[in-house]
Design a protein around this nucleic acid. Structure first.
Lengths: 241, 241
DNA sequence: CATTGACCCTCACGTTGCGTTATATCCTAT
DNA sequence: ATAGGATATAACGCAACGTGAGGGTCAATG
């Protein structure tokens, strides 16, 4: 398929396809005349690109993800689905804010200024974090905008807090994931994470699962104590219920 | 409230607030020292701005809307709500596409290339059209990207088609809105509109209501025949059922 | 009163992701 | 051969800020 056909099929511009080729994001084969010829495989890649793009990833980030050796299309689709579900609930949240605002205008309710802007800030989708961890930067503190702006001292404090929570959980790992102590520590972990993103309980549960599914995380977490990743997954699941 | 307080409350940057001031979109009072002081009214305006922005309007467009003498905050909130509901169903559509894609990968279903990109193209929200009509340009052909690229001849053809449908409906207006003839003509109107936007039946119904609610549209439509706006609203509602 | 740290200002260059226009070549039907 | 549609590259421009520089203001504290 040539550019116009793809552009019309997909609903993007020829210029966009050129641009993606130029930056190496989606490089089709070319004919002898220099025409771009897109394959079925290219269309699949394009679908991935457009899903990630819709979810707010920059083209650079998308490229990084697609080039990661660990990238798996089915996994990506499943993650993208989760992100879209989250996005949908975010839209719901905005609708709720509008409903409340209208009621406030009619004098039916009171509303704080803070409430008027709820749902407005979607700069951190928890599954975006997951995508970055899975296929991008492993170090959360390097990929998080809020952390980037922090002073060294604040970063140190943050690191210690993180460390403290993990250490505490490591001590509790031989016990039951639904014990009061464990749940208290997990609560703190949830609060900690919510400084940087808006985690729904579902997303929190999913993150715990990822600690176990993804070897890189299991390995890092289990540095605090053998089996901690599994323990955290279970405790997080209890917490999310 | 000064800039940082507003920025923190709302979740945007100080730079953004500066920018909005510079372009005249949101101009707060200033102190003698030159500091920006935001009022409650400014926060309400900011909420509007951010809702429209979330819905894909450019800052220029938003400015135009907010400056329109006919702008009404409650109306805006209600319209924004409708747009968010539409956006949500668009997200749903994308989720459906992902589900299908996964099934196709597993060999459970077949899928055309076209189907793989369904939901991907959200470049024309029907309620966006409504906002533009209500507070922006009244002439649809001047605000619609697809029409902009057309030749004079094509525009003329379009205008005649539009005219023809309206004239036909005017002849039918003394009859019943649910008659076969009326419904056939409304179907053509629906198809006509769908050349330029993706109208759900709900959006189509809402548009008909707007013909009656908004005096400017009633007036224009009733030039074709007294009472046509009401007739069209009713016929469009029947069609949407 | 002086100092300090947080916050404020303006200015201006840079970034991202294309849209748009110009110019030239390729392809296919007539 | 011609014409019209499609393709290519090149390159300027734009929207909406992000970022850094340099300087002023404010309020608490010593």
């Amino acid at each position: 398929m040539k550019v116009k056909e793809v552009a019309d099929l997909v609903g993007i511009s020829v210029r966009t396809l050129h641009h993606y080729d130029e930056i190496g994001l989606l490089r089709p084969e070319t004919t002898e005349a220099g025409y771009r010829m897109y394959s079925e495989r290219d269309l699949e890649t394009l679908q991935q690109i457009l899903f990630f793009k819709e979810l707010g990833f920059s083209l650079k980030e998308i490229q990084k993800i697609l080039e990661d050796p660990a990238f798996d299309r089915k996994e990506a689709l499943e993650l993208q689905r989760k992100m879209l579900v989250e996005k949908r609930s975010h839209v719901d949240h905005m609708i709720t804010t509008i409903d409340k605002t209208i009621k406030q205008m009619l004098g039916e309710i009171e509303m704080t200024n803070k409430e008027k802007f709820e749902g407005m800030n979607f700069d951190h989708n928890p599954y975006e974090e997951e995508a970055r961890r899975r296929w991008g930067d492993e170090k959360v503190d390097e990929s998080n905008n809020k952390i980037k702006g922090m002073s060294k001292e604040d970063k140190k404090k943050l690191s210690e807090e993180w460390d403290g929570i993990y250490t505490r959980l490591a001590k509790l790992r031989h016990g039951s994931p639904d014990s009061a102590e464990a749940q208290e520590a997990i609560h703190e972990w949830y609060e900690f994470l919510n400084h940087f993103g808006q985690y729904s309980y579902e997303a929190f549960r999913g993150l715990g699962q990822m600690y176990v599914d993804d070897e890189r995380f299991t390995k890092n977490i289990d540095n605090y104590g053998e089996g901690l990743a599994i323990f955290m997954r279970d405790a997080m699941a209890v917490y999310a219920d």
